[in-house]
Measured scan of single mutants.
Amino acid sequence: NQASVVANQLIPINTALTLVMMRSEVVTPVGIPAEDIPRLVSMQVNRAVPLGTTLMPDMVRGYA
């Protein structure tokens, strides 16, 4: 089972991601792999991401 990136807090739209906003968790469906967390830092979300939501590739500008 692969860990995915999950929002550690509410992340408002257009917010640049920081390490404290994300955690890794084994979830279904699988989202962005946890090993990509360092790559996600400073990328912006293109929608509001509620606490506990799995980050999907289409939620992060420039990721996919």
Rank of each mutant, 00 (worst) to 15 (best):
residue 35 E to R: 15
residue 22 M to S: 00
residue 31 G to C: 03
residue 14 N to I: 02
residue 38 P to Y: 08
residue 3 A to C: 03
residue 6 V to C: 03
residue 64 A to T: 13
residue 18 T to I: 10
residue 47 R to S: 15
residue 25 E to F: 06
residue 29 P to M: 05
residue 37 I to Q: 05
residue 62 G to D: 09
residue 15 T to G: 08
residue 25 E to I: 12
residue 23 R to A: 13
residue 40 L to H: 01
residue 12 P to A: 10
residue 39 R to Q: 14
residue 59 M to L: 05
residue 41 V to Y: 06
residue 20 V to F: 13
residue 1 N to W: 10
residue 20 V to Q: 12
residue 50 P to I: 08
residue 41 V to A: 04
residue 53 T to G: 10
residue 23 R to Y: 06
residue 38 P to A: 11
residue 30 V to D: 09
residue 14 N to L: 07
residue 23 R to Q: 05
residue 19 L to H: 14
residue 33 P to V: 09
residue 47 R to P: 02
residue 21 M to K: 03
residue 62 G to P: 06
residue 6 V to L: 07
residue 12 P to V: 09
residue 29 P to Y: 04
residue 39 R to G: 08
residue 37 I to A: 10
residue 63 Y to K: 03
residue 49 V to H: 02
residue 43 M to C: 04
residue 17 L to W: 01
residue 13 I to A: 13
residue 26 V to L: 12
residue 17 L to N: 00
residue 28 T to G: 07
residue 55 L to F: 10
residue 3 A to V: 09
residue 60 V to P: 00
residue 38 P to S: 14
residue 56 M to R: 11
residue 37 I to F: 04
residue 41 V to D: 04
residue 11 I to H: 00
residue 35 E to I: 14
residue 54 T to Q: 04
residue 57 P to G: 11
residue 47 R to E: 09
residue 33 P to L: 08
residue 56 M to T: 14
residue 7 A to H: 02
residue 54 T to V: 11
residue 10 L to P: 09
residue 50 P to A: 08
residue 40 L to M: 07
residue 11 I to M: 05
residue 46 N to Q: 12
residue 14 N to K: 05
residue 47 R to T: 09
residue 49 V to R: 03
residue 6 V to A: 03
residue 36 D to Y: 14
residue 50 P to D: 13
residue 43 M to F: 12
residue 25 E to S: 08
residue 31 G to M: 02
residue 22 M to I: 12
residue 60 V to Q: 00
residue 50 P to L: 08
residue 18 T to E: 07
residue 48 A to Q: 14
residue 16 A to V: 06
residue 19 L to Q: 13
residue 30 V to W: 11
residue 44 Q to S: 11
residue 26 V to Q: 14
residue 26 V to Y: 14
residue 36 D to P: 00
residue 40 L to E: 01
residue 33 P to G: 08
residue 31 G to H: 02
residue 12 P to D: 14
residue 20 V to H: 10
residue 37 I to P: 01
residue 30 V to S: 13
residue 23 R to C: 03
residue 44 Q to K: 07
residue 23 R to P: 01
residue 6 V to T: 06
residue 41 V to H: 04
residue 26 V to T: 12
residue 39 R to F: 11
residue 48 A to G: 05
residue 31 G to V: 02
residue 55 L to D: 01
residue 45 V to H: 00
residue 54 T to H: 03
residue 36 D to L: 11
residue 18 T to K: 10
residue 13 I to W: 09
residue 19 L to K: 11
residue 60 V to N: 01
residue 27 V to Y: 02
residue 63 Y to P: 05
residue 2 Q to V: 15
residue 18 T to F: 03
residue 28 T to M: 14
residue 8 N to W: 05
residue 3 A to Q: 10
residue 21 M to Y: 11
residue 53 T to V: 14
residue 52 G to Q: 05
residue 63 Y to E: 04
residue 20 V to L: 07
residue 25 E to Q: 15
residue 34 A to K: 08
residue 13 I to V: 14
residue 18 T to N: 08
residue 9 Q to M: 12
residue 11 I to P: 01
residue 32 I to C: 03
residue 48 A to V: 11
residue 12 P to Y: 10
residue 3 A to R: 09
residue 52 G to L: 04
residue 52 G to T: 03
residue 8 N to I: 10
residue 54 T to P: 08
residue 44 Q to W: 14
residue 54 T to D: 01
residue 2 Q to F: 13
residue 5 V to R: 00
residue 1 N to Q: 14
residue 63 Y to L: 05
residue 18 T to M: 06
